[in-house]
Write a protein that binds this DNA or RNA. Structure first.
Lengths: 163, 163
DNA sequence: AGAAAAGTGGACAATAGATATCCGGATAGG
DNA sequence: CCTATCCGGATATCTATTGTCCACTTTTCT
């Protein structure tokens, strides 16, 4: 089970957009340059994030992307689900209803016990991500990154911010 | 992010093997028949489970598979990791070290804050699976399945148990 | 001893999904 | 009108999953 790289990109992008003033934006091209990832493919994910209502896109000249709401109101789960989808990782194919010991369909009302456990685990996973916001990610960066990295990031951002 | 179907198969197989007496076994062919899944492919997963020390394989005539230890001592996580591997779903590609704002490698000692959150979530996922045993799965089946299903399963098992 | 049944592991093909690019269309600003 | 930007579809490529097959070894039954 492997998670799409797009999720990692999206979270980094969200963290960067969190320090962009609400009236400004960053283009897909600038975001891909800053993170060193393929622009055309990142754009796909940015569109998904916009559709999900996590980012906001400003079309036209001087357009770009920004957060759709305050960084403290966007959870990591919001971003993950926007990129990776809301489908469960574990899909129950109702094995219990197959084979020689299977009975009539009415015998299988509730969720299969095995699926139940897997769903619970995924819910625990989501709970963790739901309790961390983009603002938290930013705090972590400010707390742990070297001063040099923070200065370089801020400088680049100042230079590239669109109107 | 989608989990391999093999995990579902393996958990169902483990639940069935949990009711097989310790001195008996079930062949890969019988297990695939009982669950209505492709035999050759299930065999691959059974081998992985054996390598991981979750199942025990008895080669030769009258051979088959059985649990390597008591059902209460095998967790769902054991089975999931045996089939799906122990690799993390989220892989950090150190995006922070790329792009125009990147600094020298020594600037990035600890784990990236974003990766940290994703790792924590996966640990919460694993914690859930670690706290459910194969015996628990069996209890759930006994508690929730209809009597008819349980009788049909037991009957089939009686008939097919190898010596 | 010989035959049959079973797991092992490698090679291989088919399929699906993730990754990545490109282009025409819509939209907004100069 | 022209340019920069986002949008969405079509398409190509790569990789992992899924699935099959076969030769090989081990064990047991006759």
């Amino acid at each position: 089970m492997r998670m799409s790289d797009g999720v990692e990109w999206a979270l980094h992008v969200a963290a960067v957009l969190a320090v962009v003033p609400p009236d400004k934006g960053l283009t897909a091209a600038k975001l891909s340059e800053f993170h060193g990832v393929p622009g055309a493919y990142l754009a796909k994910h940015l569109q998904a994030l916009t559709r999900a209502g996590v980012f906001e896109a400003v079309p036209g000249r001087n357009g770009g992307y920004r957060l759709a709401r305050a960084a403290k109101d966007i959870t990591v789960l919001d971003v993950v689900e926007a990129v990776d989808g809301r489908a469960r990782a574990f899909t129950c194919s109702e094995i219990r209803q197959r084979g020689p010991a299977a009975g009539p369909k009415s015998d299988y009302r509730g969720v299969c016990g095995i699926a139940r456990v897997m769903y619970d685990a995924e819910e625990a996973y989501r709970d963790t991500l739901r309790n961390v916001t983009i603002e938290d990610l930013l705090s972590s960066f400010v707390k742990h990154a070297t001063t040099g990295t923070q200065v370089r990031s801020a400088t680049w951002l100042q230079k590239e911010l669109s109107s």
